[in-house]
Design a protein around this nucleic acid. Structure first.
Lengths: 340, 340
DNA sequence: TGACGGCTGCAAAACGTTTTGCATATAGTG
DNA sequence: CACTATATGCAAAACGTTTTGCAGCCGTCA
């Protein structure tokens, strides 16, 4: 392992002082040194493969150029990847790196990890959840600029970003109404979470707008899983007055709806149209026919969180904001006009 | 934001020198200071909420306590989460933190990210791929201790860890044979990758062991996707001498096999048994009936990689090793004895 | 009583940067 | 030619640790 080359080596090789090298390389201060010298120093630095030690510069500048990302159940959800990628892309574009920790549901461990992040002098922290929820962030975060990702904080002093759940429900209804459906049911998640309330509210609002009432018996809630969706769909689709279209809380429940339809001898989309939420490629692309679904903007939320954090770091007085990011429709083949 | 408390503040508050505080807190050197003093210093440090600045100690010790994890397509695969979690858990248990970067398929970007990691003085790097493959690692990694994760390197000087693909195929065959099947087909991935070769070889070896030949026409390769699995299964299951059991390259292809079976009026597992590989909860748990499948040990591989890296850091002369981790069977309901 | 050894604890240097203040050299002006 | 203004580069301090070498103090033993 070639022993590391430091700024002193560059100075020696270029025949100038350490100061001059630092200035020459610093963009902001390079005006203080002769253009020809700058050129020369850069060449020498390049030849030597010099790369500044960020530990040292972080120490000196009180700015580590590291952002912490603390998340919960990264393992059990397929969304984590997109969120991390969005955050990392944004960070990388601005010369920052991401330190990722996750602690499952263990609060004590989470606080410990946050302290570890702080010891490494992270410049700020993204506090991420894997599904939209209301959280109260650990108190150790008081000491660090923080953005809440895919959740809202009880502390309004923290900026946050969540999907536009209402809009997702609204767009799904629009899609089905535009296809000509009138008898549309929703298979909701039984949990008391913003996504369930928001999607239902948006869905209902859009139907209202079109003069279509959503009858109570056309909203059935189940466990948020394929099995839960299957049971709910079995119920709805075996009624005498069955709906011609189903809006499902998520793609997993929509997968259950497909299974129920198949079991009852109904075809998607000829006999029943289905719309999901999440755009899990694995499911939405895998189902046959492909599932039209509202994509959850995990990548964009990750990006937004980092950008916002960097902005607040730059400008500590910037107002805190609470962003909702739209959920675009991804059309596949699960929606068709109702028969007859 | 309360201004940070440093070791000097602790020393002042405790009425001793900075050195003494450092020694008292250092476990290894705490013998150099009176036990009562140690006690006192620890108390004061606790009261003040002192936490050592790792940037500074890293600079001084030439040991950042940071590990880099560079991966490719974290977004598009659901495995990334488990791999990262495994790595992070192991790192955290040993007082290290993980810096995660991913670069999609952009090699230039990847090298850039690796250099960024190096600037932050990571102690070592995990070079991870999202599916088992042969790689030649970027040359910048020559300068840092590196472990290859879910891939093998053309450079044998790098330790690596992959799933036991052969074993997965072997166990799958064992399961089906034990259930009484004789006419068993494999739906393989058409790509020229270790997983495809390994699983097929293991599968074939186990059948051989039981005196069952795997006829060439019972190995059909398709695109690694639900659609690819569907087509292959459609082919296999509509033959006059159709197989009674299908071993699928992965869970997505198995999902396609379910669809094909459904389409042909065959039931799983009564008419055809199915086994997958991956144990993607989303699919394996979501399918109806649940899919029996060989779990890919992503969590364990992540763990192993970090542990091995830490070990090589500790002990640079440790021999490099190339590990295969077993793929345990996760039984659900997709296997039953053949009819008649 | 004097010397020696063992405990304690301290001062200072080092890790690799960045930046301020100052010194020198050069050019510009009356 | 004297003097000022400007351009260029350097030395040194600081960021917060860790660790080596040394000094003071105490007790012990001859």
């Amino acid at each position: 392992m070639a022993t590391k080359v430091n700024i002193r080596d560059v100075a020696k090789a270029a025949g100038v002082s350490v100061t001059t090298v630092s200035h020459a390389l610093s963009e902001a201060h390079s005006s203080r040194v002769n253009a020809r010298t700058v050129e020369h120093i850069k060449a020498v630095a390049g030849d030597l493969g010099y790369a500044p030690n960020r530990l040292a510069s972080g120490l000196r500048n009180q700015r580590s150029q590291i952002l912490g990302l603390v998340s919960d159940e990264i393992t059990t959800t397929p969304f984590a990847g997109a969120m991390i990628q969005g955050a990392q892309d944004a960070a990388s574009e601005h010369g920052h790196l991401l330190m990722v920790v996750n602690s499952g549901l263990d609060n004590e461990l989470e606080r410990q990890e946050i302290r570890a992040l702080q010891q490494h002098q992270v410049d700020g922290i993204i506090f991420a959840r894997m599904f939209n929820q209301q959280v109260s962030v650990p108190e150790e975060l008081r000491a660090v600029p923080t953005i809440v990702l895919d959740a809202t904080s009880d502390n309004p002093g923290l900026s946050s970003v969540v999907p536009d759940e209402f809009g997702a429900g609204d767009s799904a209804a629009e899609l089905l109404v535009a296809a000509g459906h009138r008898r549309i049911a929703m298979i909701n998640n039984e949990d008391d979470i913003p996504a369930a309330h928001g999607r239902l509210a948006g869905f209902r609002a859009a139907l209202d707008r079109h003069g279509l009432r959503l009858p109570e018996e056309f909203v059935v809630a189940g466990h948020s899983s394929t099995a839960g969706g299957r049971e709910a769909a079995l119920d709805l689709l075996s009624r005498p007055e069955r709906p011609t279209a189903l809006f499902c809380f998520n793609d997993q429940m929509a997968m259950g709806a497909y299974q129920a339809a198949g079991h009852l001898g109904l075809r998607v989309p000829e006999d029943v149209s289905v719309v999901g939420v999440d755009n899990l490629e694995l499911i939405a692309d895998g189902l046959w026919p492909g599932l039209s679904t509202m994509a959850l903007p995990h990548y964009e939320m990750g990006r937004w969180a980092v950008l916002k954090l960097l902005n607040e770091l730059e400008n500590p007085e910037a107002p805190r904001t609470h962003e909702k990011i739209p959920c675009p429709l991804v059309e596949r083949q699960s929606v068709a006009p109702p028969k007859g």
